[in-house]
């Protein structure tokens, strides 16, 4: 049975940037647009899959979600890749390797922190061998929350990364705004453990606030989600010792 295709029309997205004239097509516009179109749609992924999130990354690369359809192909070597997806807990033993692999990737490069372990260390945050978030030693562009995030969430994160790449090229955001230094109070776990009587009830709110403002500065109006703080009584401090965060000066992250 023959299929009637006379009514079918398809325009490649590139033609949006092309002026058509009879007999020839001329692309008017800057080469930057072309490069942006190219780099946003061929994000080759270097899966830095260490633990549980790696399995969900595999599920995202498999048939149900299929990252390939947006041009994202997982590759085994950092030298061919544009995006490093850090999926899983990074430990003290692994961190130097991650740093090295990140440095081996050619510019322009992006980093996606997938899952709460990569974002903040999750409940392993306080443990001697775990890095409290990879943004303490490599810059992160997109945070995909979840434990582990669904494959769809990773897909969404990559779409947001594409958006970011376009914004960068179009000059809506500068590189510094897109990838700021991580806030100093996230560099080191200074939050008391749950059953610790010394734990400040306000620390969790501070953490939420700084996480909400993370990476965007004043570009996004996040003030509306900030709750009004109750004025807390200063806790009686034995010997007026400040929080353990005070010694973070000498042990600041690289």
């Amino acid at each position: 049975m023959a299929v009637d295709e006379t009514q079918r029309t398809y325009d490649h997205p590139l033609y949006q940037h092309v002026e058509r004239m009879p007999g020839l097509s001329v692309a008017l516009g800057n080469i930057d647009q072309l490069l942006t179109w190219g780099s946003a749609n061929s994000l080759w992924i270097f899966p830095m899959a260490t633990s549980c999130c790696g399995i969900e990354f595999m599920a995202a690369a498999a048939s149900a979600v299929d990252l390939d359809r947006m041009g994202s192909i997982p590759r085994g070597t950092p030298r061919q890749c544009d995006v490093m997806v850090v999926a899983g807990t990074i430990t003290v033993k692994m961190a130097p390797r991650v740093k090295k692999l990140w440095e081996q990737m050619p510019e322009p490069k992006w980093c996606v922190a997938m899952g709460s372990c990569a974002i903040s260390g999750d409940f392993y945050r306080d443990i001697y061998s775990v890095i409290p978030g990879i943004d303490t030693f490599i810059p992160v562009d997109v945070y995909v929350p979840g434990c582990p995030p669904n494959p769809e969430a990773l897909m969404h994160g990559l779409l947001r990364l594409q958006e970011k790449i376009r914004m960068l090229r179009e000059g809506k955001l500068t590189r510094e705004e897109l990838r700021p230094e991580s806030p100093p109070n996230l560099n080191r776990p200074a939050i008391g453990r749950l059953h610790d009587p010394e734990r400040d009830p306000l620390t969790s709110e501070e953490q939420t606030d700084s996480a909400a403002g993370l990476g965007f500065g004043d570009n996004l109006n996040l003030a509306r989600i900030r709750r009004p703080r109750p004025t807390a009584e200063p806790r009686p401090q034995p010997g007026a010792e400040p929080q353990p965060a005070a010694d973070s000066d000498e042990e600041s992250a690289p």
């Binding site: 260490t50 807990t89 430990t91 390797r97 443990i127 001697y128 061998s129």
Partner: peptide, 9 residues
């Protein structure tokens, strides 16, 4: 390389 100190936790 993935020692997360689960037993200590």
């Amino acid at each position: 390389y993935l020692h997360r100190g689960v037993e200590k936790l």
